[in-house]
Design a protein around this nucleic acid. Sequence first.
DNA 1: CTTGACACAGAACGATTGTTCGTGTACGAT
DNA 2: ATCGTACACGAACAATCGTTCTGTGTCAAG
Lengths: 218, 218
Amino acid sequence: MRETGITERQARMKTFIEAYFSDHGYAPTYREIMKNVGIPSLSVVRYNLERLQKEGLIERDPRVARGIRPQKPGLRPIRIWGYIQAGEPTPVPGINEPVFGADEALAISQDLLPRDENLFALIVRGDSMIDAMVHDGDYVILKPQQEARNGEMVAIWLKNREETTLKYFFFENGKVRLQPANPTMQPIIIDDPDENLEVRGKVVMVIRPLEKRLPLAQ
Amino acid sequence: MRETGITERQARMKTFIEAYFSDHGYAPTYREIMKNVGIPSLSVVRYNLERLQKEGLIERDPRVARGIRPQKPGLRPIRIWGYIQAGEPTPVPGINEPVFGADEALAISQDLLPRDENLFALIVRGDSMIDAMVHDGDYVILKPQQEARNGEMVAIWLKNREETTLKYFFFENGKVRLQPANPTMQPIIIDDPDENLEVRGKVVMVIRPLEKRLPLAQ
DNA sequence: CTTGACACAGAACGATTGTTCGTGTACGAT
DNA sequence: ATCGTACACGAACAATCGTTCTGTGTCAAG
């Protein structure tokens, strides 16, 4: 009698199903599991799905196409890439290595975020982002991008100042106006945006959990 | 050319799909929609699904069994009770009537919030909450309670000042210290908390959606 | 050694399920 | 009147997808 354990193959299946479900909004087929987990036979997929079901790790409806459902659906892990603070460049996927391990991620409801985007999260450190109305400990969720459109809030690295900042972006007459979210504060005008300004990502959401830590994926 | 509207049949389809998805964790087949909505032909189902997709009310993957996904599955609606602003008392369930209709609610992932609580949401109006690092347009999610423990961020009505505020709460030597989230700002000391101070709720989360409006339930 | 459980393999089967196509009606614009 | 478009209907089709069946190999208990 196996007590709690599942085999490594079953664990990979479970992981794949959850990831697939997050990405697509529906479950994979047996054949897709077979391919992606690297299982040679369909019946083995079925066999192990039954195991997972008996363990209570998935639910399944017989005879229903794509009828698998993971236990905790709808959550999408968003990798925490590092910290964001005034005095240091923003760590960004594709440019920097992540500060946190691969399993350090925010689990956020799919539906609050744009779909199929390669999002990542940063933890705000220190009170330097106050003029962006962002608090020490807040999570900032970003979409990596190197350019900004007017009105978007973006994470910017200012070369001259050696400073990271979160501001609303406006391109006007060849100059860039960086507007703080806090209306009592003055904008920064960048005269030479090409040399001085590097957009690192667009802010998609700010989350400030006060009562409960955000659940970590995995 | 139809501009925005959908037919009554399409609305029923959408409702059914969402309900089905909630119940089962996966989408219905065309034939199930046909039966339950009372449509005589499969191709009519398909036709109207295409309409719904063009309207952005559902998403669909071609050639995928049960490949429909409603815009927002499996979320917990949190009733939006009204606005929160400095000059007016916080509307609170059980005391005030809701400002918004019953179907005005935030759809938020269960997993980000404490379980089984009677939460409600307020929309921040104006910039008066700046010292709480809360922005005009932010959503503040509250748990109704009349008392606070040290360190909790609460929504408070100050009778003398006739002012609503969001502050960290500390009870010290018979007095209450209300600490702004913004560390550059000074605390308020309340000498007569019993008379002057009314706790309306505990702030559980602050959400600032920048990229995408939060989906409304219904 | 035998037995039986557990895990895996491959292939054929048949139900499930989206797609296509031909047809018809109503209605406003040309 | 005629044309185009939105909407509806029904049947046949073809791909998708879970199920079943027959086997193989391993390993511990008897």
